[in-house]
């Protein structure tokens, strides 16, 4: 791989998923490290970009596309899914329906991009796992294996759990970083889309968050 130290490599990442699963919240937590109980509903598409510092002085620029969740807005989306490197498809672990709808979102993405896009499954609101969980880890794991997504992860934007890790994993999944052994975790990144990696996503509120690995941001 040639020396890219002077050129900021850019990646487009689109966030999809049902209404109010926490797409805006995920992006806001990542961008500004803040959390509000409520964000105004996203209409159409919002755009944000952030530079991420990785190991060995590598820098990449992530372009994040936040979308409206309501079904009818899908007709506005395809034109830019076409260009994205990563589709982060989100659901709410306390809302079974948002999980069942993942099928539709995945179908949309694959229709546009075939297997050419990295799909990531994110179950948000893991802080409510104890009393309100409706989607189990087994549920998402089997979906993950079925569709061949890159990885799946549960996050809590409220408790700031796994959000940085999510973005770090995304960064590591990007084409340029696949064959460079930058990972310092047990699981190794794999550039074969058909053999997706999985990561440990057990929720333990007392344990230190995995994202304290200060490898990004």
């Amino acid at each position: 791989m040639s020396d890219k130290s002077n050129i900021l490599k850019k990646y487009k990442i689109v966030f999809l998923g049902d209404q109010s699963v926490g797409k805006t919240s995920l992006i806001t937590r990542f961008m500004y490290d803040t959390f509000d109980e409520t964000y105004a509903a996203t209409i159409g598409i919002d755009f944000l970009s952030k530079t991420m510092y990785l190991e060995e002085g590598k820098t990449i620029r992530l372009q994040l596309w936040d979308t409206a969740g309501q079904e009818r807005f899908r007709s506005l989306i395809p034109s830019y899914i076409r260009d994205s490197h990563v589709a982060v498809i989100c659901y709410d672990i306390t809302n079974k329906k948002s999980f069942l709808n993942l099928d539709k979102w995945i179908k949309d993405v694959k229709l546009e991009r075939g297997d050419d896009v990295i799909i990531v499954l994110v179950g948000n609101k893991s802080d409510l796992a104890n009393d309100k969980r409706q989607v189990t880890i087994e549920d998402v794991e089997s979906l993950h294996l079925k569709i061949g997504s890159k990885f799946f992860i549960e996050t809590s934007t409220k408790a700031n759990h796994n959000v940085k890790l999510l973005f770090k994993k995304i960064a590591q999944s990007l084409p340029e970083f696949n064959n460079e052994g930058t990972e310092n975790e047990n699981n190794t990144s794999n550039n074969n889309h058909n053999n997706p990696e999985t990561i440990d996503i057990t929720i333990d509120k007392n344990a230190p968050n995995p994202q304290t690995l200060n490898t990004c941001c």
């Binding site: 209409i43 159409g44 598409i45 506005l76 034109s79």
Partner: peptide, 16 residues
């Protein structure tokens, strides 16, 4: 047929 990307921004101007 394929509106320019900027309409992704302006669609919401009309809707809201």
């Amino acid at each position: 047929i394929r509106l320019p990307p900027i309409t992704l921004v302006t669609s919401s101007w009309f809707m809201s």
